[in-house]
Amino acid sequence: MSRLGPRFAELKAQNRAAFIAFITAGDPNAEITAALLQRLPEAGADVIELGISFSDPMADGPAIQASSLRALEAGMTLPKVLELVREFRKTNKKTPIVLMGYYNPIHKYGTAKFAKDAGEAGVDGLITVDLPPEEDDVLRLPANAHGIDIVRLATPTSDDRRLKTILEGAGGFLYYVSITGVTGTKSFAEGDVRTAIARLQAATPLPCAVGFGIKTPEQAKAIAGFADAAVVGSAIVERIAAGAGVDAVISYCSELAAAVHGARV
């Protein structure tokens, strides 16, 4: 059973937005990812998004492209990503983990087998960037059967008709891509995102998260004032790229978490 529903219900009861931290599995190596995973919950990450590397990350900007490449060079593979989740679950039963990646590695692994193995490893949600609702039955049905939510993306280009398609079969939370662009590049206009989130919240009972353009604690705080979750990825990954140790990355995540959690006080 996915931990996403209970986690968001808990946060809602506390009138708090969720802080979702993204890191790429295996960047710069499996040991550091394991250490980060272990400590992200205490740093205030309510949900962890773990990136699956792909050689051709078409929806990602330079920071996550480079991160993906570092992980691949360090020998990360999809079975090893699941191994990291399994290890994490030995000590943490509560923090939801969402895997984010592209379809081909999953396709190669075997979609049904992956859903089963991921469910058993303790994965709660899946975001498959290049697998739109029209094509995702093949993953969604087995994933749901193994207690995994399929997290769908909505974007500034999603009109009402498209939104209906996106929401059909969506689970966990709805991920709003705040910019038209790849990860970690443009910045969003707060007013536009606020309007978009109000529209999404009216259309679905799912919590609505915002990601793709949040770079600072201030921006995270602003988003957390009205959205149900703020996702930070590239800004964390850039610190890992710059050689920041586990302590420094965790302390930066604590800052982001504090900003998100303090937004509605």
Binding site: D130, T155, T157, V177, T180
Partner: peptide, 20 residues
Amino acid sequence: INGHFGAYGGRFVAETLMPL
């Protein structure tokens, strides 16, 4: 109508591009 040639083809793109 979904762009499939047998088991191949389709539209495997990021959601931002789907409406386009």
